[in-house]
Write a protein that binds this DNA or RNA. Structure first.
Lengths: 220, 220
DNA sequence: ACAGCAACATACCGTCGGTACGTACTCAGA
DNA sequence: TCTGAGTACGTACCGACGGTATGTTGCTGT
């Protein structure tokens, strides 16, 4: 092992150049988030973004391969932050049903944030394409939904194979995205959120009822 | 009442000019559907579309106010056709649960059509914006979901106000859109569809179980 | 001290949505 | 039958925007 390769393993203090570089990169992502959220992907021009970040297109194309790559970076940031708050909300709950409700509540909060609505839910699929969109979602908010659904179903003591759990998770994720959108566009988001919570709770209660009366569970 | 205004009430045989006009309009919409489906909204250029329809941009801008208006016309066509097939599938079923399953089955068929997936589900919200998207959906596929959900809930003999039914309808619509997407991108759409059907059936069974044990129903 | 690369800046290009304007054709009314 | 008006396009062009090609600067390892 050479000296050079060793130095790569040692924690390095970033040079001033690297620090500045990261600063412009962050500035671009932040302006991207702001303008993509406000005007949408196509209506937000790169000229506006670089002007807002007080750099030039040269800087942008040094850090990102193009407009879509910038959007993807913004997407990851917004999605990551949202995912983290949901994860936080799950802590301190052991019972699957409690966890489900807690996660649902936080999701309904997240989905009302303009950036998440516009970038992740509304334009994400169209801009990234479903393939990349899924890739991103798989390692973020969706995984929490999957985990919750998995534990809820396990609590019902049905023996479901992984694809069946996946199907339920997809269904709930879609339901909550749609419900979240309805909540965030409602005249009174508070009561709208309460109604969604009541509906989901009701569905979960149906699961419990089936579990208690010894239902076989879904059979594919 | 003048002669002129009377003549407007009389069914008129369309002139040759009008016939040709409608033909080019249809040609534009059909090419729009084809290219929007294949390449997406932004990647499908108006030059391609008018070339494919064998007209010029003058013709396009005579019939539509712009690219978005053409997309909206295409959207209405695709959505309308899908909605009609779902409506057809509901005929001959009286029992709410049967209707729900029949509608679900047809929806899972519809959602596998590339045009519906790309234009209605994937790009519709982003291109039209959620406001116009909702307007369109309200009078088509969503209304069927609403009707079905309404009758299912009524069969459970819970007394729910309209917003609560609306909430359930939103949830199910979102669930089915997401599930449909999962089905259409699955390696084996057949079994994926079967799993979705099993999952939804299971949820509905939960409703039935709650109804039988005299549950109060969701309270907002 | 110098080579070399990272981190930008500047100038420019092609494409695309949209517009302005011209034209052929139709058709109702005098 | 002639004509004015309106419809249904075609043609030429513009500005904006995403992307690229080509510098320029300054840190950094050797």
């Amino acid at each position: 092992m050479t000296k050079a390769s060793v130095s790569k393993l040692v924690p390095r203090v970033p040079s001033r150049r690297q620090q500045y570089s990261q600063a412009t990169r962050r500035a671009l992502i932040e302006m991207g988030e702001e303008l993509f959220t406000e005007h949408g992907y196509s209506a937000a021009s790169l000229d506006q973004i670089v002007a807002g970040a007080e750099v030039t297109k040269g800087a942008l194309y040094h850090h990102f391969s193009g407009k879509q790559a910038l959007f993807e970076a913004v997407f990851e940031k917004v999605e990551g932050e949202a995912s983290r708050t949901i994860q936080e909300s799950l802590k301190g709950h052991q019972d699957p049903w409690d966890k489900a409700i807690a996660g649902l509540r936080q999701f309904l909060v997240v989905v009302q944030q303009p950036a998440y609505r516009r970038i992740v839910i509304l334009e994400g699929p169209a801009v990234l394409g479903y393939a990349r969109y899924r890739e991103q979602e798989e390692r973020s908010a969706y995984t929490h939904v999957y985990d919750i659904v998995d534990s809820v179903l396990e609590a019902g003591s049905w023996e479901l194979d992984e694809p069946m759990v996946e199907t339920f998770a997809r269904i709930f994720f879609g339901a909550m995205s749609s419900a979240g959108e309805a909540v965030s566009t409602a005249d009174d988001p508070e009561t709208a959120a309460a109604r969604v919570e009541a509906a989901i709770t009701f569905i979960l209660a149906g699961f419990q009822a089936l579990a208690e009366q010894g239902d076989d569970g879904p059979t594919s």
